[in-house]
């Protein structure tokens, strides 16, 4: 009982047309159909946050959506954060503040944080902790990630300082 659907999805500005099975998860579509393996798959039940992508600009867990639901929508993955060869201020900040070790969780953190840092010029530390509460990191103990968020916000909003 293969239920096939043809979908058109815009990912990182490029529109793709593919025929997918209804049961294909959006995370698998991004990785296996489009070959964008920057989106990582951890738990596949919505707990770890590694597969977070932007869906119409909002962070969502791509393992908790079907690809067929993305028909006509826009997705951004970690590959779309900055042009080839460049880094988004958030990525620079993660690098400079040592906010990653193994890096498995990093794409999920970056996609969760992109809208947050853009819309929060002066967050409290508690707000930052709440913003990343849906992403698990087993290496850093989170403190360096929080430092990176502060640094990224400085880069984005307070360049004169």
């Amino acid at each position: 009982m293969t239920d096939l659907h043809t979908i058109r999805v815009t990912v990182n500005g490029t529109t793709y047309e593919r025929t997918v099975e209804a049961r294909m998860l959006l995370s698998d579509f991004i990785r296996h159909e489009l070959g964008l393996t920057g989106t990582h798959v951890g738990c596949e039940h919505g707990v770890c946050g590694a597969c977070t992508v932007l869906f119409d600009g909002q962070p969502v867990r791509s393992c908790l959506m079907f690809a067929v639901q993305a028909d006509g929508h826009e997705i951004m993955t970690v590959e779309g954060l900055a042009p080839e060869g460049e880094m988004h201020p958030l990525q620079e900040a993660f690098h400079e503040a040592h906010a990653l070790q193994c890096g498995f969780c990093t794409p999920g953190f970056l996609m969760t944080l992109k809208p947050f840092v853009e819309t929060h010029p002066n967050p409290t530390e508690e707000e930052i902790r709440k913003a990343i509460s849906g992403n698990l990191c087993r290496c850093t103990g989170y403190q360096h990630i929080i430092e990176a968020v502060k640094l990224a916000i400085k880069k984005i909003h307070h360049t004169d300082a």
């Binding site: 919505g46 946050g49 977070t52 869906f55 909002q58 962070p59 969502v60 867990r61 908790l64 959506m65 969760t112 709440k130 913003a131 509460s133 849906g134």
Partner: peptide, 12 residues
């Protein structure tokens, strides 16, 4: 509302 799961979950 903010007690419900995480921001990503609340978006869906």
């Amino acid at each position: 509302m903010p007690f419900i799961a995480h921001p990503q979950i609340r978006n869906r």
